[in-house]
Design a protein around this nucleic acid. Structure first.
Length: 932
RNA sequence: GCCCGGAUGGCGGAACUGGUAUACGCGCACGACUUAAAAUCGUGUCUCGCAAGGGAUGUGGGUUCGAUUCCCACUCCGGGCACCA
């Protein structure tokens, strides 16, 4: 590991980049904006887990630069400042000092790793120069009526003595210390995020986020469309107004289930229904009251069972065949028919009577129409007798009614069938003769209980069976066809919703789970809310020229016992003159949450030193204007833990600023990705308390920064969590040394120190491929592999598949090392694609090969498709799906030729001789499968 | 309870759209070089079998000429939401 002094080399290049500022914009013609979610200061320091996403973004950013883009890749600090505060409280060191200390350490660590941040755009969100603008934006919210004071419950942690936001007290447990929280009522500042709920939901359609992130955001917003309907003086919210005829009680929020003794009128049926207090109804969702529809809601059903309330079915199942042979034909009208679907149990075995149709691929129970004047039971008996001959039937029960729209192949018509599911048990095998015509239609099967579902195959045909055997089908919560609903009967749920809502005088509304954002914190560390309370003038905003309202220097920033902010005790700071009337007034002592500064820091990156505005319009436009889709930050990588709150909050702020015409795009981020965590060696989360934290400095000291970077990328799929393993890191180091060795060997003029010992040099010559084949062929082979690798690495970086990119470069160097000589141009191309991964060592080799400019100023190599194309391809030959041989054929060999060659192959003949070749399947450029 | 991921050698993991399962790396074993060690290079390394062959991608089934990949059921692990009418 001491063949060259990697630490020296890395230091040399860190310094070089610092001085030359190689990473400054070099091409204004194109633009790109990549963003990293920075590592935030915490007590435990930066660990290898933090480094991973930075490395990934650094690789992308370096590649972009080589592709000629102007890259904005800034660095920010402490937007998620909570850990600092937390650590400060624990240690008693002043938060500002902790931040300063940590920031310096981290800055040094990040530089060591060679990240190509644009340090001149550094943003520190806890700096008053920055949070001035956070306060300024808050005042805009206030001006537009989106910031308001309201009574609200806070979760108070008796141990931390801190009021917690909802997200910090999940399930009533303090996220910081695990203590159970207490609810306290308090006047709090709120931000009206619910006004943006609809747009925050809708605009997800236009951004490039992973599907799961979108889903999580949508769930959080919780949009649902329904109706407000009055039952006398009680208004309920329901998403299922179509079930109102089945509403047999009204449930209002309460602590226990006790009947209130009151009755109200169901506006649809005009019947009186009882009003119950119910513990599963939430006071703050919808209207705090709901209509109980036991037949079509599981909780209502449970409740009605317990208190013996009537269950009234008003919606029946409807299935429409969407695909395949039974899909209704568009040009045919539907023929409605009442039918029976008859399930018949065997007289002694646990088997059931099923039919396999002969003319179509249908598997059903006995079915048929109900003739005029027949009861369903009579019809069922008749059908069983006609189709199967069995007569000794005992009627057990009617299973239910379900509807189906399908195309009846044998009869060539669209059918709209209303099935009555009928269940019989056969008493004996007494059987009459079945007429020939019926026998032609289908064949009879007795199917085992547990095979029925797989025999019937089609879900819709198995509806009767599911209703009979599966309890979860007992409450139908889906949409279907209305029954017992007066003039709305036979409408579909979809059709009925609007009509019924109108009929009962209700109105359609959209509700969200999302609540307005509680924006106050009773803590020291946060931007003070820039508001003054005056006895005469009320709430007065601090004027813009007095911003920022800075945090006062305090001795004790610990939270108070009474739930007030620590700032409340500092009368010097609190007591001010009212800006309007100059009378005595008091400052707001609440501060903003850590999410505030992080909601817009990316905007400041475009113009971090601006003193007049939070960022100039010109800069915002340059970096954010749509390149694709909605525009915004081109690429934002961050941890999964921020996919709901932070992402949603910053989207909200951005949209608000967009409405004020202060930012040019309606969405902040065009593309969002998330990295998986690096876990400690045991697979646990890294944490200081567990003592399993891997410090990047230690790794760098032993293996070098390039090795660490490579390993972080190689260790596993980027979006997946992986456990760290220090043992494996040596592989990445060996790879780098191999690259170095090839570089040292490649040219006599190379100024690289002779990295190969004479012994190793002696051992090197040049594996079998170098000796056995002529040199020219070798060089063509390497060229081809190189171009394949360029393609692979280029594409893999874009898709964040760094692990396979590294792997393919390892394969290439493995082959290169076997060669007697390598074209220096080819080797340089390889260095270029490796450069983003291992910037220091590639830079050193690059310049030792006579290059004067930094490798990052060179251009990203292009691959040549014609070189990649194979002239001969390998075709696998399978016999009955098993690989038996392989043949080489020319790229443009015809199918017949290949098949012919395959059938004559010795290895194949062994397996097919004496057997009939039934079928030969040829998959282009891949394989031949011979079926015998 | 609901929603979303995942499960492949001793280990991290690879496999394009259903087409050679285990690339690449680690570890291990053997060999070369060396007085020796380290480093480096080479060979081998899923499993049963002497071989021909057979069996393996969490478990069980299905579709297919062919399934790690698609479908159904289940087990375990991870993440998110949780009386949302």
């Amino acid at each position: 590991m001491k063949e060259y002094n990697h630490l020296k080399i890395e230091k040399k290049w860190q310094k070089y980049w610092e001085e030359k500022k190689t990473f400054k914009a070099k091409n204004d013609g194109k633009k790109f904006y990549s963003l990293i979610e920075f590592p935030y200061p915490s007590g435990s320091g930066l660990h290898v887990g933090h480094i991973r996403s930075n490395t990934a973004m650094d690789i992308i950013s370096r590649k972009r630069r080589m592709e000629g883009y102007n890259v904005l890749y800034p660095i920010g600090w402490d937007a998620f400042g909570l850990p600092t505060e937390n650590y400060a409280i624990k240690t008693g060191i002043e938060p500002a000092k902790v931040t300063k200390q940590n920031t310096d350490t981290f800055r040094k660590q990040l530089k060591t790793l060679g990240f190509s941040f644009d340090w001149s755009r550094e943003v520190n969100t806890t700096d008053p120069a920055y949070y001035k603008w956070t306060q300024w934006i808050f005042l805009k919210f206030l001006e537009k009526g989106l910031a308001y004071k309201a009574k609200s419950y806070i979760n108070w942690c008796p141990s931390c003595k801190i009021g917690l936001a909802n997200e910090e007290a999940v399930g009533g447990i303090c996220e910081r210390c695990g203590t159970e929280t207490i609810k306290k009522e308090k006047e709090q500042w709120m931000l009206g995020i619910t006004k943006y709920a609809d747009r925050l939901d809708k605009d997800l359609d236009f951004v490039d986020y992973p599907e799961r992130v979108k889903t999580q955001q949508r769930n959080w917003i919780g949009k649902s469309e329904g109706a407000l309907i009055k039952f006398d003086n009680i208004e309920v919210f329901t998403t299922r107004p179509d079930t109102i005829f089945g509403a047999t009680f009204i449930a209002v929020a309460g602590k226990e289930n006790r009947f209130t003794g009151r009755y109200v009128t169901n506006p649809a049926t005009k019947e009186n229904v009882p009003v119950w207090e119910v513990d599963y109804v939430m006071e703050d969702y919808g209207t705090g009251a709901l209509m109980g529809v036991p037949a079509h809601d599981e909780r209502d059903f449970e409740f009605s069972k317990k208190y013996k309330l009537p269950v009234k079915t008003v919606v029946e199942r409807l299935s429409i065949n969407a695909t395949g042979q039974s899909k209704p034909k568009d040009d045919l009208p539907f023929i409605e028919r009442n039918c029976v679907d008859v399930i018949v149990k065997h007289w002694s075995l646990n088997k059931y009577l099923c039919l396999q149709w002969k003319k179509v691929d249908w598997r059903t129970f006995v079915t048929g129409g109900i003739e005029k004047g027949q009861t369903p039971e009579e019809a069922a008996r008749m059908e069983v007798r006609e189709e199967t001959g069995y007569t000794d039937l005992k009627f057990i029960k009617e299973i239910g009614v379900y509807h189906s729209k399908f195309y009846h192949g044998p009869k060539k018509v669209n059918k709209f069938a209303h099935f009555h599911g009928m269940y019989f048990e056969l008493q004996s095998d007494i059987q009459e003769e079945v007429i020939a015509e019926e026998k032609e239609k289908h064949e009879l099967h007795w199917v085992d209980y547990d095979k029925v579902i797989s025999f019937i195959k089609d879900d819709e045909n198995a509806m009767g069976w599911n209703l009979l055997t599966n309890e979860s089908f007992s409450v139908f919560t889906g949409e279907g066809i209305l029954v017992n609903s007066g003039k709305f009967s036979s409408l579909t749920s979809q059709e009925a919703k609007k009509q019924i809502t109108e009929f009962v005088g209700g109105k359609m509304v959209t509700k969200y789970k999302l609540r307005d954002w509680i924006f106050s914190r009773q803590r020291y560390w946060g931007e003070p809310i820039p508001v003054i309370f005056c006895a005469k003038c009320g709430i007065v905003p601090v004027s813009e020229k007095d911003l920022p309202v800075e945090l006062p220097k305090v001795k004790n920033y610990q939270p108070t016992d009474n739930g007030e902010s620590p700032l409340a005790n500092i009368s010097k700071w609190v007591n001010v003159k009212c800006p309007k009337c100059k009378g005595p007034a008091e400052r707001e002592t609440d501060t903003m949450p850590n999410w505030a500064g992080s909601s817009w820091y990316y905007l400041r990156y475009t113009d971090p030193k601006n003193k007049k505005e939070f960022a100039s319009k010109k800069n915002l436009k340059y970096w954010l204007m749509p390149k694709q889709g909605f525009g915004g930050v081109d690429w934002y990588n961050g941890g999964m833990e921020h996919t709901t709150l932070h992402l949603l909050y910053s989207r909200f702020w951005h949209k608000f600023l967009y409405d004020l015409k202060l930012v040019p795009t309606p969405e902040p981020y065009r593309k969002r990705t998330s990295h998986g965590m690096i876990l400690a060696e045991g697979g646990d989360k890294m944490s200081k308390s567990k003592g399993n934290v891997i410090n990047p400095d230690d790794i760098v000291k032993t293996y070098g920064a390039d090795t660490l970077r490579l390993y972080e990328m190689f260790i596993g799929p980027f979006e997946q969590s992986v456990a760290w393993n220090t043992e494996s890191i040596i592989g990445s180091r060996r790879f780098i040394e191999k690259v170095w060795r090839i570089g040292a060997n490649i040219s006599a003029e190379s100024s690289l120190p002779g990295s190969l010992s004479p012994r190793a040099r002696g051992a090197l010559p040049l594996g079998p491929s170098a000796c056995e084949t002529p040199c020219q062929e070798n060089s063509a082979f390497i060229k081809k592999l190189l171009h394949k690798t360029i393609k692979k690495v280029s594409e893999d970086i874009e898709n964040m598949r760094f692990n396979t990119a590294v792997s393919s470069m390892m394969i290439l160097t493995g082959e290169m090392e076997k060669m007697e000589s390598i074209d220096i141009k080819d080797y340089k191309k390889f260095l270029k694609i490796l450069a983003p991964f291992a910037p220091h060592i590639t830079e050193e080799i690059w310049q030792s090969l006579g290059e004067k400019k930094s490798i990052i100023l060179s251009s990203w190599p292009k691959w040549d498709e014609s070189l990649i194309k194979d002239t001969e391809i390998k075709i696998m030959i399978q016999v009955n799906g098993k690989v038996r041989a392989e043949i080489m054929v020319g790229i443009d060999a015809g199918e017949a030729e290949i098949k012919d060659k395959a059938l004559k192959d010795e290895g194949v003949l062994k397996h097919i001789s004496g057997k009939d070749v039934k079928k030969v399947i040829y998959v282009k450029n891949r394989l031949i499968n011979i079926v015998v």
